[in-house]
Design a binder for these strands. Sequence first.
DNA 1: CCTGAGCGA
Length: 136
Amino acid sequence: MAFVSGFQRLLRHSHSHFTSIRFNSTLTSPKLFVSGLSRLTTDEKLTEAFSPFGQLMEAKVIIDRASGRSKGFAFVSYATVEEAEKAREGMNAKFLDGWVIFVDPAKPREPRPPPQAESQAPQTGFTVNKTVGWCG
DNA sequence: CCTGAGCGA
């Protein structure tokens, strides 16, 4: 059952994945998004599968806190981009616990605020007091 | 218990 679903996913996503690997084989971040996991796959199993490719900084299966079960995807990050590259080449579209997993670059979790906020220092009450002093 | 596109308990 699980194998059939894995193959269906593999066929569905084969276009975008294999073409993106062929034409864009360079990662910009050592963070990887792993999807297609078995719901039984844990951090331990993920670490076992991804540790041969480099120094793991993080290998975390995302757990749904309502059910306490895996959501079926995970985040894996390495010390360097090169290691993440090897892991992606070595683990993408491979079997893990009976499911075909997909390894892609991860998006940044928090949208970064534009760096214009740093240029203007947040002066609060003192600015108002100076202005009042100018009046008197 | 079961589930199958996706981007963080």
